[in-house]
Design a protein around this nucleic acid. Structure first.
Length: 554
RNA sequence: GCCUUCGUAGCUCAGGGGAUAGAGCGAGGGUUUCCUAAACCCUAGGCCGCAGGUUCGAAUCCUGCCGAGGGCACCA
């Protein structure tokens, strides 16, 4: 159990005990919380319980605090409890107990795994960029958030499936095929113009070249209607390989690639949701199109499911897709990670999920604000000339995998993010990601030295870990499970990045204050080596969760 | 117009009911006969967009206003 939760328990027991003793009246339901105060003199944990319930028991908070602390049971970890105006109860952990935790953390690979209740199978769908072009910088943000979140869920014991939804159906893909075919014809010296709203990017020429290299003029000789579809599908396949490769560059690999087209089969999910909605009378025909009467469900308006030309909208296929997730694959919980430009889609999708028999409460949509790219003072336009975009691959090539992951992750999803290429590269020496990695490398280096000097942590005596810097470092380590908990409850992996930096700072400070390897003091050395092992465990873990490498030397 | 996210140090961002608001970068100063100086320590820098309200207590919650991004398609 987390020490935080044990302290909450102490407070609950104290309250109950005071009630039983008759010193205070019975308190109706309430939640006891503790937090980490900003200031050291307020202890390791602080509770506002007296302030919260003073009105209920009709005793002034400060007096109430006095009563409560008299009933707090003793606990190994707690050295003393103080009250502070206007009515806080502050807990100070004993240094001895804190020091002992170094031993626990060093030997426990599962340190940080919080106990979970409820659903344990979870699907996280992210990136899912259209396969009609290479993935861009904004997708990189979704990739970093999704991947780190998935890592953290997995670490905690969830069954996680990471999925990429391939939009390989619909009009976009048709236009993609037409564009590709036009480029292909041009490469063979034929006159051909791009379709309206085609894809002007030069990567389409490269793609056509690749197909030409592989298939020569095969597609020239065919003269049937399906040639565009064939060449389009071929192009999509190649694009997807490229996307997989780009994602691999930032350490992202999916368990599953789900094809939109597969929903359109004879008795597929698309047909099923259409018939369910028809049966439930939630569909109407208007202007030649088929509408979902979502306004009757409290949505701001109705939405088109089938266009007047008979093709389904993205909305309709997305309903089918989520029907497949919830009803067929039976995920308890689904997390979709989308760019903020899809915000308007959230509410109507949830409404539709409920209509087709799913439970939209199982769906969390995590929206991330869009990315602005900068180079120093200059804003880098995400799309340069017509169709030319700054790809994720460009950025990763420029700043490196680790820095890219860190920068994408470090800003909260709700916050619009500025990615400064100049900062990420030019100042790489002062880059937070190197700062964190350096802590790990330093530890490895000291551990190596210890081996040379024939020192190890077996003779550790945690009572010797009493320096302020040592205690502070262990206190930082003890925060790790709480961080994991927050990442999962808030779906906010940026906490990982900030915590990692704080932990690294605690370590670097310790390093400056306390020499580890000292031949003449083998017991102290041993104890500090134990602390290093504990720190390395947590640092390596958290870097792993963020998808950043933990180097042994730099 | 409606919906939504945001506004915190010169810059990039944490904190999202709690006590004297924090980091990094940038600025100024100091630290190395000793485990990696990609480090450590110190200093300067803030009406937390503005105005009301709720509360014992507001950067945090509510309302309004100002400013920025995104959305309001038979695009995805």
């Amino acid at each position: 159990m987390l020490i935080r939760d044990e302290i909450i328990l102490l407070l609950e027991q104290a309250l109950k005990s005071a009630e039983n003793a008759g010193t205070i009246s019975s308190v109706p339901n309430h939640t006891v919380t503790v937090e980490h105060p900003n200031r050291q003199e307020h202890g390791n944990f602080s509770s506002n319980l007296p302030l919260k319930i003073q009105g209920l028991v009709k005793i002034k908070a400060l007096d109430l605090a006095k009563i409560i602390i008299e009933h707090i049971p003793t606990h190994d970890a707690v050295e003393r409890v103080e009250i502070a105006p206007p009515g806080f109860i502050n807990f100070f952990l004993s240094d001895k107990w804190v020091a002992q935790q170094a031993s626990v953390i060093a030997s426990d690979d599962s340190f940080g795994q919080i106990s979970i209740t409820g659903e344990k199978s979870i699907q996280i769908e992210y990136v899912s960029a259209n396969p009609t072009g290479p993935i861009h910088v904004g997708n990189g943000r979704g990739a970093a958030i999704g991947s780190s979140l998935a890592n953290t869920f997995k670490f905690t014991g969830y069954q996680v499936q990471q999925e990429y939804y391939i939009n390989d159906g619909g009009t976009q893909v048709l236009i993609f095929g037409q564009t590709l075919y036009a480029r292909y014809l041009q490469l063979h010296g034929n006159e051909a113009s791009l379709p309206d709203n085609g894809y002007p990017g030069s990567y389409m020429i490269d793609l056509a070249q690749e197909i030409k290299n592989q298939y020569g003029g095969d597609f020239m000789e065919q003269n049937n209607d399906s040639v565009i579809e064939q060449i389009g599908m071929l192009g999509i396949e190649i694009m997807i390989e490229g996307i997989k490769n780009d994602l691999k560059q930032i350490g992202v690999e999916f368990d599953s690639w789900f094809s939109e087209k597969s929903l359109m089969k004879e008795n597929g999910q698309y047909r099923q949701i259409m018939s369910i909605l028809t049966e439930k009378n939630q569909i109407t025909e208007r202007d030649g199109a088929v509408w979902f009467t979502s306004s009757e469900l409290g949505e701001s308006k109705d939405n088109v499911l089938v266009r007047s030309d008979g093709t389904p909208t993205y909305y309709a296929t997305d309903i089918a897709y989520h029907y497949e997730k919830f009803i067929e694959r039976k995920f308890d919980r689904v997390i979709d990670i989308w760019g903020a430009d899809h915000q308007g889609h959230v509410s109507r999708l949830k409404a539709a999920i409920d209509s087709v028999g799913g439970n939209s409460e199982g769906l969390d949509v995590l929206l991330y604000q869009l990315v602005t790219l900068r180079r120093g003072d200059e804003i880098v336009p995400l799309s340069k000339r017509a169709g030319e975009i700054v790809t994720l691959a460009n950025v990763v090539a420029e700043v490196g995998e680790d820095a890219a992951r860190y920068f994408f992750l470090a800003t909260g999803a709700n916050q619009p993010m500025e990615f400064d290429l100049e900062l990420a590269v030019k100042q790489s020496d002062d880059n937070p990601v190197y700062y964190i990695q350096y802590a790990h490398a330093r530890i490895s280096s000291i551990l190596d030295l210890a081996v040379e000097q024939k020192l190890d942590s077996r003779n550790a005596n945690t009572d010797l870990l009493s320096d302020a810097a040592e205690i502070k470092l262990i206190v930082s380590l003890l925060l790790f499970p709480e961080i994991v908990e927050r990442v999962l409850s808030d779906l906010a992996p940026h906490h990982l990045a900030h915590y990692a930096r704080e932990l690294a700072a605690s370590f670097h400070n310790f390093y400056g204050q306390c020499r580890v390897v000292q031949i003449e003091k083998p017991e102290l050395s041993s104890s500090r080596l134990l602390l290093l092992e504990a720190t390395r465990n947590v640092l390596a873990r958290i870097l792993g969760l963020m998808g950043i490498s933990a180097p042994d030397s730099m």
